[in-house]
Amino acid sequence: MPVVASGETTLAVEVRDLVKRYAKAPVDSLTGVSFQVKQGEVFGFLGPNGAGKSTTIGILTTRIRPTGGRAVVAGVDVAADPVGARRVLGVVPQQNNLDRSLSVRQNLIYHASYHGVPRATRNQLADSLLEQFGLADRPDGRPDDFSGGQIQRMMIARALMHDPAVLFLDEPSTGLDPAARLFLWEKIAELKEAGTTVVITTHDMDEAATLSDRVAIIDHGTLLALDTPQQLVQGMHSERTLDCTMEPGPTGDAASLGIALGGLAGVRAVDQLDDPAGTGWRYRIDVDGEPAPLVAPVATVVAETGAKLTDVRLGEPNLEDVFIHLTGRALR
């Protein structure tokens, strides 16, 4: 198995100073992107439409020629040896590219035959992947007769047929309904557990945060940040919050409690929120500095009014806030 050893860790993907200028384009779509993906890692690429996610995936999967820089997948330089690279990578593209003349099962089996997987192995593997991806009940249907979520899963199952060292997924959940999206997330989590290296692009910060070990934030063809979702968010020193939910006591009212909370040292602002459960009071307290030390004083104030604290949540800024912080714009 060709894998590049760099220091201690084994790298599944290594990208250095990647530049892409499309023919006739006035600007670079990638301006010199560098990153590394470790073996077994789920690596998220987060950025708005047009950021350069598909361009990066396209180069790594040999469909787009880089203008400059170097990209290595599982030890194979994709520009120097595209055929070798295609042996070791799997792709789930942004758009449906299933073979419409073939059944679902045949899509998997013929794909494997292109990759030289022996007949007995590919039949067996196709059945087990169809099962695993919840597609076993209509293996002989044509792709056109399936939903978007099912098509997405078919493409993942197909990509796994030749046992790729790295699986690339380009916006796999865009356009899926919430249930289909959750099912997809579950599948990707399973792949990670099985040790597959996954590179996934998304413009959805929940998806990036939920699935990825590390996230690269990209905009206008430039990597703005790269770290674990936790580290990225911790880097944001501002905008810490404390979310409190309570059961109202016999005395006291919501407004005066809000004013009392606002009087605590270290509290910048207090907003009363809707309580999703509908019975209690909820406040979001914006905090200067660390929110944890404020929990005790808040509890005291609440107890004084006779209310009962039922839930306290230290609100962290999320990846979307990180993106806004880096670019001054929202993700979508």
Binding site: T121, S128, D163, P164, L191
Partner: peptide, 14 residues
């Protein structure tokens, strides 16, 4: 449920 070959990269027959 994951087939034995889905896992850490092994290119085996290919």
């Amino acid at each position: 449920g994951v087939p034995q070959s889905v896992g850490p990269p092994t290119v085996g027959p290919v």
